[in-house]
Amino acid sequence: MTAKRLPFALAFCFLLNLLLASFNAPLNAQERPVSDPPVIESSWDDLLEGVTDKESWLAHKQVLKQRYLDLIRDQYKPEKPLLDLQVHEETIVEDTYIRRLISYQVEEDERAHAYLGIPLKRDGKLPAIVALHGTYKQGARRAAGLEENSNKAWLDHLCRLGYVVIAPEHFVSGHRIPPEGPYDTTRFHQKHPEWTSVGKFTYEHSIAIDVITAMEEVDADNIGVIGHSLGGHGTMFLAAYDDRVKAAAGNCSASFFRHNSGVTHWSRDHWYIYFKHLRPGFLEGELPNIDFHEILALIAPRAYLDVSAMNDGNPLTQRQRVLMLMKVMDVYELEEKPENFAFFVHGRAHSVAHESRQLLYGWMDSHLKPAAATATKLVEE
Rank of each mutant, 00 (worst) to 15 (best):
W363V: 11
D330E: 13
L323S: 14
F344S: 06
Q358L: 04
Q358K: 01
F344K: 03
K327Q: 13
F343C: 00
H350I: 06
S351D: 04
F343A: 01
M329T: 05
G362V: 01
S356M: 02
L359C: 03
V328L: 13
F341L: 04
H346F: 03
F344P: 03
A349K: 13
R348H: 14
E335P: 05
V345S: 12
S351P: 00
L359R: 11
D330I: 07
F341T: 03
H354W: 01
F344C: 04
R357H: 05
E336P: 15
M326T: 13
Q358H: 00
P338K: 11
E355Y: 01
A353Q: 12
L323P: 14
S356T: 06
A342P: 07
E335A: 10
K327A: 08
W363A: 14
K337C: 11
V328R: 07
G347K: 06
E336A: 15
S356E: 04
F344R: 03
M329V: 01
A342L: 02
R357M: 10
A342D: 08
P338T: 10
E335W: 07
M324Y: 01
F344E: 01
Y332M: 09
S351G: 02
M324S: 02
K337E: 13
M326K: 12
E335H: 08
P338F: 08
H354I: 00
V331K: 03
F344W: 12
K337P: 06
V345T: 10
S356N: 02
A342M: 02
R348T: 08
L360S: 07
V352A: 09
E355P: 00
L323H: 10
D330C: 05
R357E: 07
R348M: 14
S356A: 01
V345I: 14
H346M: 01
D330A: 06
